[in-house]
Design a protein around this nucleic acid. Structure first.
Lengths: 204, 204
DNA sequence: CGATTGACTCGTACAGTGTACTATGAGACA
DNA sequence: TGTCTCATAGTACACTGTACGAGTCAATCG
């Protein structure tokens, strides 16, 4: 515990929080552990941050740091790139999906929304459809991320889940047959579904 | 506290849990409060239920009780009906969105997935696209539900959010102009986005 | 009949949580 | 030197999930 620690700050706190979340998941973040990690007293944190929830909010937005990508002539490819990047940023920190239910519109989230909106406009989506298009894509990305974070089981777990599904009476013939839970090509499924959605959008 | 209480049971426990969750939200459910509500000791609950997480899992699936709807000639309308019902079931219990991150495939969820899968097959979605189609629609519904549950602010909050957005530098001209956060027609947006997705699916 | 077993109920206790309150020191300026 | 503000903390409190073990009561068995 060298006293050469740099001064406590909001930034240092959320950086430590992200590290702890990455290492031990959402349930592993404790104000006490956070303080230990920073070599400070627990209550010192509360000078920089109102309550624990604020730490989580800030950590989520921090993870979504955003570099404005350059626009290309292909608006559709731009959108796909944008959303893939969004998804990847969250999957790099799987706890972020669990934090989605809290309503956060941090600076980074807003920047991403703005870029998305801009790309859609360039793509010729009618102004009357714009908000619905933004929310649809947002919903899709968030849902896909959430699903992946929840269902990305180990191979063994996956087989067990499919088995349970088959046992649960033979009442689910279609999804049993399509091996819905054994399919682990999440990236492919994400891209394909995004394609469906963009196809539908492009028809307007 | 009449001792004519019906015997404790898993069913009674989760019914009480749903009632408490409806009344006080996810953070309002405590094993102690649950026991008080049922007129029993706290530890009695643990005979019927392994741990608190199990209560939440069971409550989530309970809320998704599913009545197989009759099929019509219009598969697209069937799917829309299916997904609207799914969404409505969850919105009736807003805490359910916050529980989504836990991976639950209860009987009711599976029944709904099966019905969805069946309707898509009837609609002529190619078998190779089937899983992607199911997950896409699932992702969309979950994302939309999550978004609504998180963002359905009061009118005052909504104005404040939009204001904050405008203040946050003028760096977000497009979404400021489209009044993304002031638009509160969530049902309409949901239906429209679902339309986009189904349009895209139908093209295959 | 008493003894035994099993299903079920629950009081106590413990380690851990977020955070309110309060006290303390460090520099800056008078 | 004395204040004043910023910043750091220790202590304390109410509350959480749940392990442990002791209790109750009905059914079963010898």
């Amino acid at each position: 515990m060298s006293d050469a620690e740099p001064a406590l700050s909001r930034e240092r706190i959320i950086a430590a929080a992200v590290a702890l979340l990455d290492a031990h998941g959402a349930s592993g973040l404790t104000m006490r552990k956070l303080a230990d990690h920073l070599g400070c007293g627990v209550m010192s944190l509360y000078w920089h941050v109102k309550r624990k929830e604020a730490v989580l909010d800030l950590a989520l937005d921090a993870v979504l740091a955003f570099n404005q990508p350059s626009e290309t002539a292909d608006w559709r490819a731009d959108i796909i790139h944008l959303l893939q990047d969004w998804r990847r940023a969250m999957l790099r920190h799987p706890w972020s999906a669990a934090l989605l239910p809290r309503q956060v519109l941090g600076a980074n989230t807003l920047a991403r929304l703005e870029a998305l909106s801009h790309a859609l406009s360039r793509g010729g989506v009618a102004p009357a459809d714009l908000n619905a298009a933004i929310w649809s894509l947002w919903n899709y990305v968030m849902g896909a991320t959430l699903t992946f974070a929840s269902f990305n089981l180990s191979a063994a777990d996956r087989v067990a889940a499919q088995q349970r599904l088959e046992d649960l009476s033979g009442h689910h013939p279609t999804i049993t047959q399509s091996r819905l839970l054994l399919d682990d090509d999440w990236d492919g499924v994400f891209a394909k579904g995004l394609g469906f959605l963009l196809d539908g959008l492009a028809r307007r």
